[in-house]
Structure formats: C-alpha cells, structure tokens
C-alpha cells in the first residue's frame, strides 16, 4: 500500500494522546490507593490532560487531509454497525470530550472525594471520568487497529498483532511523553513513568517483531492464476490497459525501493525501541528534561517510520492486476 501521511500522522498522534491519558489515569489510580503521592490537580493532571487533548486534536486534523470531501465527514458516524472506521469516528470525539472534561475538572478543582475507604483509599470524581476515558482509550485503540486488521485479504494486517501493536506502541509513546512531562510537573512520578515506559516499550518490541516475523513468512493466498482464473504456471501480464497510471497504480503500491524498505525497518526498530530507552534512562539519571523530551521525539519519529513501514509492507491483491504497463 502507498503510505498516506495523513493516516500516518493520525494514528501516531492519537496514539500519543491516548498513551498520555492512560499515563495520567494510571498515576491517579495509583495515588488514589496511596501507592503514589498525590499530585497537583492543575499542574499535573490538568496540564497533562490538555497535552493529551492537543495530540488527539492534532490527529483529528491530520485525518481530515485523508478525506476527499471533509465537509461531509459527519456522515462517517452513521455505519457503526458494520464499519470499524465509523466506530473510530464515534469513539475519538467521545474520548476527546472525556479528556476535555477531565482537564477542566482538574483545572477548576472540581474534584470532590466521593468515598473514602477504611484504608484511606479515596474515590475522587475525576477518577470516574478518568475510568470512562480509559475505557474510551482502549476502545479507540481497538477501532484503529481493527480498521486494518479486519481487511482479510491484506494478509500482513489481518492479525490480532495489528491491534496489539497499535495499542502498545501508542501507549509506549504516551508514557515516554508522560515521563518527560513529569520531570518538571511531578518529579516524584518520573521514575514510575520511566519504568512503565520501559516495560511497555519492551512489550511493544516483542509484539512488533512477532508481526515482522509473521509477515516475513506469509504466503500470498491470491496469485495471478486465481486473479484471472487461468491454470498455468507461467502467466505474464503484457498490458494493464492504460499507460499513464491510475489510482490503482498510485494508491496500492508503495513505490519504495527495496533498499528503502529494508533500511526503514531497521530505522524504526532502532528509533522506536533501544534509542529512546537509552535517552530515557540517561535523562532520568541526569534528571535532564532535554534528554527526556528527546527520548519522546526520537520515539515519535521512529513511530512515523514504523507506520510508514506498516503501510508500505502490506501487499494488496489488486496489485496482481497491475504488474506491467
């Protein structure tokens, strides 16, 4: 497939936003049961949620560049019964609304304690919103992943690994951002987030490599024989019916050289996994915000490469009909 930058930015940006929100939710739920010191509502949760919201908005804006008719985008919410894309279109604004409410409640201090247990655990109003947001976040990860995983003849995508990778990679980038953010706004939580970032990034490495291995061993179900229904071992296309190119030749081929494909794989494996982790631990060790933020930026650039590779690697069966001009 041809990697469309609108979709690359959409999926990576909302991934950061979702991961950042999950990090805030994790932090708050730990502190609710007094496993972590509680943080300032405005400085940490309020601003943190606004950052998450900005990434979600960025993703939403990027998605509009993918549409031919963005003015009709509202129609996309209608087919949620059958279309994962439609479900994503519904869940994304719901999540954005919940994150917005969460940010406002923290910012304005609308955070009454609803319930305190004997052990001292507190159930705050914002935690209920955060829990709903957490559910919406995972629902959004599933929707985004299933958009690709549900297309059965794109065999590289048609696997539960697609959904798992979207979830883990998005969460990892959000947690790395949360680590960098907490360095200034909640220094007590920096190590907590740093350790979770490492765990999630390593988990993402395992599942992403698993999907790379799976895809390397895929055998295409469709062949030129099944495409035109002729049973002969040697079939060569001599003409695709036109010479100037069409949507079929532009949208479905990655137009990348083998060298670029191979190098992109190693680039993203390096930029998403080991390099940010080194920067992250160096940054935590030195207590250096620049190093921590560069860990996030390096990983984000790596994720752009990862998403590019994800699209470029998928081989659409329609390409069998467009082998030669």
């Amino acid at each position: 497939m041809h990697p469309a930058f609108s979709v690359i930015f959409l999926t990576t940006l909302i991934g950061v936003g979702q991961g950042m929100f999950l990090a805030l939710f994790t932090g708050q739920s730990y502190s609710a049961v007094e496993l972590l010191p509680s943080q300032d509502s405005t400085q940490f949760y309020g601003y943190g949620a606004i950052i998450a919201l900005l990434f979600l908005i960025g993703g939403l804006i990027a998605s509009f560049f993918h549409l031919g008719r963005p003015e009709r985008a509202w129609r996309a919410a209608s087919q949620w019964r059958t279309s994962w894309l439609s479900r994503e279109v519904i869940v994304l604004p719901i999540l954005m609304f919940l994150v917005f409410v969460y940010a406002v409640m923290h910012y304005l201090g609308w955070d009454s304690v609803l319930f305190t247990s004997e052990t001292g655990a507190r159930l705050q109003l914002t935690l209920i919103v955060a829990t709903l947001g957490m559910l919406a976040t995972f629902a959004l990860f599933i929707c985004t992943g299933m958009i690709y995983a549900c297309l059965k003849f794109l065999q590289e995508w048609h696997s539960p690994l697609t959904v798992i990778n979207y979830t883990l990679l998005g969460t990892a980038s959000g947690f790395v951002l949360a680590t960098a953010f907490s360095q200034h706004n909640a220094p007590e939580l920096m190590r907590f987030y740093g350790i979770w970032s490492t765990i999630i990034t390593v988990a993402a490495l395992i599942t992403r490599v698993a999907s790379l291995i799976r895809n390397a061993n895929l055998k295409s179900k469709s062949t030129v024989q099944t495409a035109i229904g002729v049973r002969h071992n040697t079939i060569k296309q001599k003409a695709m019916g036109f010479m100037g190119g069409s949507v079929n030749t532009r949208d479905f081929f990655n137009h990348a050289s083998l060298v670029l494909m191979k190098s992109m794989k190693w680039i993203f494996l390096l930029l998403v996994f080991p390099l940010p982790l080194v920067l992250l631990w160096l940054g935590m060790h030195e207590n250096n915000a620049t190093l921590l933020f560069s860990a996030f930026i390096v990983q984000y650039i790596g994720l752009l490469a990862e998403r590019w590779y994800f699209f470029a690697q998928a081989n659409h069966p329609q390409n069998l009909y467009y082998q030669t001009v």
Binding site: G68, R72, V247
Partner: peptide
C-alpha cells in the same frame, strides 16, 4: 454521501474502485 476516504477501495481485492 461519499467522503472520499478510500477505505472501500482498500477493501476490494480486485481493485475495481477508483477515486
């Protein structure tokens, strides 16, 4: 009604849809 998102063309194994 079409918003031109191209998702249906991804979902057609025959490449029968052109934007």
């Amino acid at each position: 009604k079409c918003i031109g998102c191209r998702y249906c063309s991804w979902a057609c194994p025959y490449g029968a849809r052109e934007i």
